[in-house]
Simulated assay, not measured.
Amino acid sequence: MDDVPYDVLRVFCGPDGRHGNELGVVRDGSLLPGRAERQAFAGKLGFSETVFVDDPERGVIDIYTPTLRLPFAGHPCVGSAWLLDVPELSVPAGVVGARLDGEFSWIEARAEWAPPRTLRRYGSAAEVDALPVPPSGEWIYAWAWEDEAAGRVRARAFPGRDDGIVEDEATGAAALLLTDRLGRALNIRQGAGSQILTAPQPEGWIEVGGRVRLAAAR
């Protein structure tokens, strides 16, 4: 397991190319074919999510946190769409549309695919900035309007898990849920300086997009 190569991407980088949520990607999923092996490797890497690519041409991917397998997740899909450059991704939740548009990588998914999140609104961006990390147990997406007319949101994400990840720098699935609730396109500034863009589409689909950078190949 120690010699399995993987890439590290930063997904949802800010306009200056910094920040973003780190994502581990094992391009050759056949090196770790079993779920137990993949779970152990994801736990060893310690990223909020790790992707195993099972078919790069068809975009078949498998997503793990350090402690569990996910049927869908936002930033792993956006990062994989950028890396594989395919028109769609296949995850257990369904088929995810994918496209590249200039500096942004986009996916199209459904809010019901996202795991449950508590979307907690605050009165100002300053209140969100000042929040301490809450006790574990509840996955909280704290948000406030920075400019409601322009659709600009300030957000922070607290997974409430016991795997050492107390705050998630950029969370596509939570942005998907917030967009579904508000019914409008959003420009989200999350964490230390990550940027997530969203846009509702017909028939319940929602686009989620952001910048992706290759941080390392190991």
Rank of each mutant, 00 (worst) to 15 (best):
E103D: 15
D101S: 12
L131Q: 05
G97F: 06
L131R: 03
A126N: 10
P134N: 05
T118N: 15
R117S: 14
F104S: 13
A114R: 02
W113G: 00
A125Q: 10
A114W: 04
G97M: 07
D101I: 08
A130Q: 09
E138H: 08
A111W: 05
L100C: 10
R110D: 00
D129M: 01
W143I: 03
A125W: 08
A126Y: 09
V128T: 05
P115E: 14
E112Y: 07
R117E: 14
S124N: 08
F104L: 15
R117K: 15
G97C: 02
E138W: 09
R99L: 11
G102N: 13
E112C: 09
A142H: 02
L131P: 06
E103I: 12
A142G: 01
W143F: 04
P134I: 02
W113I: 04
A125E: 12
R117D: 12
P132G: 08
L131V: 03
R117T: 14
R99Q: 12
G94N: 04
W139V: 12
R110C: 06
A125K: 07
D129Q: 11
D101E: 12
R110L: 07
E112V: 08
W143A: 00
R99K: 13
E108K: 09
I107F: 07
G94D: 07
A98K: 01
A142I: 00
L100W: 06
A130L: 07
W106S: 03
V133A: 08
A109E: 06
A125G: 10
E108T: 05
W139L: 13
S105C: 05
S124E: 11
Y141T: 01
R121L: 11
G137L: 03
G94L: 02
V96R: 03
A142D: 07
Y122F: 13
A114G: 05
T118H: 14
W139Q: 15
I107R: 02
W143S: 01
F104Q: 14
A114V: 03
V95F: 11
L119K: 04
S124M: 07
P116W: 05
V128D: 00
P132I: 08
E127N: 10
A114Y: 03
R121H: 13
E103T: 12
L131M: 04
L131I: 05
R117I: 15
R121K: 15
R120D: 14
E112Q: 09
A130I: 09
E103L: 13
I140D: 05
A144G: 05
E103F: 12
F104T: 12
S136H: 15
E108M: 10
A98C: 11
P132Y: 10
P115Q: 15
L119A: 02
A130M: 10
E138D: 10
G123I: 11
E138L: 06
G137C: 04
A126Q: 11
A142N: 00
R110P: 00
A142L: 01
E103P: 10
P135F: 08
P116T: 03
E127M: 13
A144Y: 06
S124R: 11
